[in-house]
Design a protein around this nucleic acid. Structure first.
Lengths: 243, 243
DNA sequence: TATTATTGTCACACTTTGTTACAATAATAA
DNA sequence: TTATTATTGTAACAAAGTGTGACAATAATA
């Protein structure tokens, strides 16, 4: 693990990382009809934040984002979308990070690199909730899923970042569905519809939804799947692999 | 003018700017049925590049983008869209910038900040060709419009940046048309259609186009406009101001 | 005065979408 | 065993949206 928030020592200079640039990740999961996102909680501070990381001097920024995702969830080969750069100077507030470091027992210099202004390149990912293993970083004592519908207060402008990620997700849903990873390998049309309804926040007509999904040409129908429900067994589907 | 490429002295440290971060602008203009973009040409180097700039320590990055646009075109209040961050480490190649600086007669230190790796936050804008006044920066001796259809070779990965900007423009055209600034204050339906056809690179049916545009509810019909053509005078339109 | 180019609008077919309906079937209840 | 219930696959129809061509109107030019 090479993230500065994961390595044993957090140095005073940020050596080895691009200065002033951070990556924030909005990691969506889907479970029991609810959208979840992954948040870190910092010890003794009541502060919740998005998983974040920095970019190594010889690292591509998209690779850095994948590394952060892998470190927090153990997941690789996940669709990740760079959706916005948050670069207002008003984002800069050293107080929360100072509180986190002090709660961790670190001696904090006013000039510590973690207290300076950062521009955040933000990404969102949609992961299979059942396969992700939340994994806190070295500054936080928990990493867990939170319901998007009842989101607690977040650090800095992270609420705003989540909001923008959700808007992007809704807009891009059709176009990017095939790359997403919110469902298991195979799924039923009903499961797909409930995913859509949850993400879009509205109910959809069953008949029209099925027709639309099939017309996208990205679904492959498999044999029927007996799922123990008191009804006709639905077909199973998976996304077609050949682009 | 506060851009480092505009100020008289270009110091050795980049003091006052966020390190390692640059802004590249793809500025589209529309003229005589062709999409144009604004490029800088550097003295004695044959190098063409997108207008670029850096971010002041106390400046919002979106403001920095607007500043770069204003410095190169004189235009303010223009729609500007942040469309991607180019952050691959492979972008880094100090050779062209070194050639530019040497051609300008500058003594170039291997460690000069302009030769280091930059992450580029890229924006695109669509401006009224007739109102923009191209204005070269201090390192280049010309700033002019080039046909997008026959684009010359550009510096570094700027070709790639232009390509991505164009894709974003085509995808977002309907949703962002009202904010764009490619046409004069008032225009005819035919002018709007030719703009669409040029951007999308395909012909559209006149009747359907008019119906679709009117159904968007963003056009306000004004009195007929005698334009000297050998035909019926078309209505003039403008975009409705009240959102 | 006729011709030409473009415009505004309508008409019609065709496609897509919204909605309802109905038969099929797997578990459960009676 | 049989009825009931929940959900599924699909068909049917209406409503809305699109693609395409036709036609009259009109401003400049021949």
């Amino acid at each position: 693990m090479n993230s500065p928030l994961r390595s044993k020592k957090i140095d005073q200079t940020g050596t080895g990382y691009l200065p002033g640039l951070a990556i924030d990740c909005v990691i969506f999961g889907f479970h029991e009809q609810q959208l979840k996102i992954l948040l870190l909680e910092y010890q003794n501070t009541n502060l919740l934040a998005l998983p974040a990381g920095f970019i190594q001097e010889e690292e591509n920024i998209n690779d850095a984002a994948r590394r952060v995702l892998a470190e927090r969830t153990g997941l690789t080969d996940i669709y990740l979308d760079q959706f916005y750069v948050f670069g207002d100077q008003s984002r800069h507030d050293p107080a929360p990070m100072r509180a986190i470091m002090e709660a961790k027992g670190m001696a904090v210099d006013d000039n510590h690199w973690l207290l300076r202004r950062f521009v955040s390149v933000s990404y969102y990912a949609l992961v299979d909730f059942t396969r992700a293993v939340p994994n806190p970083d070295v500054l936080s004592d928990s990493c867990d899923w939170y319901d998007l519908a009842s989101l607690p207060t977040l650090m800095l402008d992270h609420q705003h970042i989540v909001q923008k990620a959700l808007e992007t997700l809704r807009t891009d849903l059709d176009r990017k569905l095939i790359g997403f990873n919110l469902l298991a390998e195979t799924f039923t049309m009903g499961e797909l519809q409930r995913l859509y309804e949850t993400i879009l926040g509205q109910e959809l007509h069953r008949s029209g939804f099925q027709r639309k999904m099939l017309s996208l040409g990205i679904l492959e129908r498999l044999e029927k799947q007996y799922n123990g429900g008191a009804h006709k067994a639905p077909y199973a589907y998976r996304f077609v692999s050949d682009k």
